[in-house]
Amino acid sequence: MKISLIWEHLYMVFWAVVFSLMAGLPLGVLTYFYPKARKAILWVVDLFQTIPSLALLGIIMVFLGAGKVTVITGLTLYSLLPIVRNTYLGLREVDPALKEAARGMGMSRGYQLLHVELPLASPVIFTGIRIAAVNAVGTAVFAIFVGGGGLGSMLYNGIRIQNMSMILKGTGVLMLMAILFDFGMGRVEVFLNRKTAGKSRVSAGYAD
């Protein structure tokens, strides 16, 4: 097994999550600010999720050609839903009393968003990122069909030459990767939760 496959895989997942965060966070804020846009935005990001991942990558390949760009674009669209939805939910669930206090004290809308609402919504938003990342690790397997490489090639080759140990190795690495993502980012969530709840000695990685 080549380490480079793992890096390739991580590379695609990483950029997909980064791009979907860059797009999803503003979209989430928009859905929160503008009730009229809410339904439309949530409907569209929901729609991306209903397209089978392999089909989505295929459709994008028609436009962008084979390669990592196609994979990253597909994964980005795929990751939008959890991020947009959790951003919206996180902002919505901030205690109304805090929102009123912020407004009543004379914070502008943007200031209130940046200094009160986003920090307090950050644990929920981060949950969205975690879900997106863990999903992307699995979905990125399909990269092999659109020329993106990654750990999908191990599975694909393993199936083709009926090499069970190869399949299992690839699967094991993918599972481990997903578990590590889930666990590591879960720790960050605990940290954020403690921070927004206002505990003095915040330390990442320790929950009690």
């Binding site: 009393a97 805090l98 206090a101 009160v116 921070k195």
Partner: peptide, 23 residues
């Protein structure tokens, strides 16, 4: 713009509303 007015009027609410993420 009400923002400037509000900065010159103190406001205390029943739910206290201290920002939990700030000291």
């Amino acid at each position: 713009n009400p923002v400037n007015l509000r900065r010159h009027i103190g406001y205390v609410i029943q739910q206290i509303g201290l920002f939990p993420n700030m000291t």
